[in-house]
């Protein structure tokens, strides 16, 4: 699913975001990427979705080498990824269900089916009653759940959630984690970054990827890494 060999990411200003990272993450796994703020978690997510590219080393996501010259193929690859962004990136002026459907409009999914998938996803995140509410009027936690619904509705092979609990309180943060964990199955890999390590105590992750100053060490949990 994800293969990294000696991957480093150095920004233009010389900041070393990731340093000699080696990973082998398998399909259907649940992985938490943990570490303090500024350790390189978001940089890893940016590499995995193709916003940034490795300065050195080789990175492959679902068989697609992540190279700058392959941006067209990477754009296609993103259709198999369900991203949950730290700042949600919902489209304002649209309802919750419109935002969820938006992630499927350009896929080969008939509109009736897309509506059904969107509705089911909103039910799954507990927001069916807000389906026709403008996202601008949702609370922070609700907006986060719409973002999750958008990511999962199209049944991606890989869910990438970057700090999905952001500023949520303890209970809501745990709920979001459990919700994201629930999407893990044989076909879907879930990767969640968080600096709130105290919230993932009871998680059933396959592994924790501990990021510290750009280096990643792997702490196995489920023995599948």
């Amino acid at each position: 699913m994800i293969k990294a060999r000696n991957v480093s990411l150095v920004y233009r200003d010389g900041t070393v975001a990731l340093d000699d990272v080696n990973l082998d993450l398998h399909a259907g796994g649940l992985y938490y990427v943990i570490g303090p703020s500024g350790s390189g978690k978001t940089s890893l997510m940016k590499l995995l979705i193709g916003i940034e590219f490795p300065t050195t080393g080789f990175l492959e996501v679902m068989g697609q080498p992540m190279r700058k010259r392959e941006t067209a193929k990477i754009r296609k690859l993103r259709r198999d990824i369900g991203p949950v962004f730290q700042e949600f990136k919902l489209i304002s002026g649209r309802t919750a269900i419109e935002n969820v459907i938006m992630g499927m409009r350009f896929l080969d999914i008939p509109m009736n089916k897309a509506k059904e998938l969107a509705k089911n996803a909103l039910v799954r995140v507990g927001l069916e009653h807000k389906a026709f509410t403008l996202v601008d009027r949702l609370s922070y936690g609700e907006a986060q759940r719409v973002a999750i619904a958008r990511a999962v509705a199209r049944r991606p092979a890989l869910i990438l959630a970057d700090e999905p609990t952001g500023n949520l309180d303890h209970d809501n943060a745990v709920k979001i984690f459990r919700l994201l964990e629930s999407f893990k199955d044989r076909n879907t890999t879930v990767l969640i970054t968080t600096h709130a390590t105290h919230l993932i105590g009871g998680c059933n992750a396959d592994a924790l990827l501990c990021v510290e100053k750009g280096k990643i060490s792997i702490e196995r949990r489920g023995g599948r890494t």
């Binding site: 993103r78 991203p83 958008r150």
Partner: peptide, 10 residues
């Protein structure tokens, strides 16, 4: 536009 691109829209 940025969001749509991140979601893989052509």
């Amino acid at each position: 536009i940025k969001t749509l691109r991140l979601l893989g829209a052509p």
